[in-house]
Nucleic acid binder design. Structure first.
Lengths: 151, 151
DNA sequence: AATCGATAGTTACGATTGTAACTAATAGGC
DNA sequence: GCCTATTAGTTACAATCGTAACTATCGATT
């Protein structure tokens, strides 16, 4: 039917994007319904919770690939919710050291359960081999990202 | 270092999203620089160009996974640029049949060349086996999308 | 110690997006 | 032949996002 060689269906950027949207939206529906959390907020929570230590906003951005304005807004929202507290650095007052409050920790624990269950659901939906293939492919992209990051 | 099992780095929705963003942005930079095109506009152009026939806005949205408001705006923009023309349906006047103008065709040809070159660059960057693994994984996700689409 | 440049984080602003409401047109039941 | 439900497409509006500009702080150079 197509007059030309090109087909959007076979174009990797398009396929990646569509798959990512689908997979992310299904999970976002869960934590939005459960916690009224946005994606930047969930990522910030995950970064702090999984590291298990205090982090600066810049570190969070680097760890979870978020623009600093996104992190800034997410930190503000989590602080309002009393899930996160800031502590100023005595030596260098530009830094804010961020940590989860006990309430934030509890939310994080629940979220990681949701995430684990969703990942398991993905494996059973896609099949173990397919997930491994996908993961290997993503690993290659991640490698390429790191390569092009260092100029 | 992490106190908990969960790591964002191993969470598929996150990895997929980050990889998709990276791959899409690198390509978007090319067609934005060359044509001042937005992503919805490029997708609309690609849908029309590759099908080689007239399509309605709804068809374009279904074919390229875009919300109808995105399609509507992209169609308007491409029409302003004289890359696309509308033709009304005589029998059912709700439909608009869309087709590329000769200028639109020429732009599409150039864009597919860019796309082909980029896909080739991806293969050489990631390695053929990795692209095939990624593709197999994506195919599984696409299958799951189709499954959950039919209610 | 004064200045310049770099860095952490915030905010103002414009652009883009999706939801929902809207218009216009058709189909199908009665 | 109506009345209702459905569909195609557009638009108003609010939310979200990134760029760029901004404040505040620090280090280094002189």
């Amino acid at each position: 039917m197509a007059r030309h060689g090109f087909e959007l269906e076979t174009f990797l950027p398009y396929r990646l994007n569509r798959a990512a949207e689908y997979v992310a939206l299904r999970f976002a529906a869960q934590y939005k319904a459960r916690f009224e959390l946005t994606r930047p907020e969930w990522r910030t929570l995950a970064a702090l919770g999984s590291s298990g230590r205090m982090m600066t906003a810049t570190e969070i951005g680097a760890h979870s690939s978020m623009h600093k304005t996104k992190v800034s807004r997410a930190v503000f929202a989590l602080e309002q919710r009393r899930w996160l507290k800031r502590e100023e650095d005595g030596r260098d007052r530009r830094f804010e050291h961020l940590a989860l409050t006990p309430a934030g920790e509890r939310a994080y624990e629940e979220l990681t359960e949701l995430a684990g269950a969703y990942q398991a659901e993905l494996v059973s939906m896609l099949g173990k081999e397919n997930v491994e293939a996908l993961s290997a492919g993503l690993r290659a992209v991640e490698r390429a990202m790191r390569m092009s990051a260092r100029r």
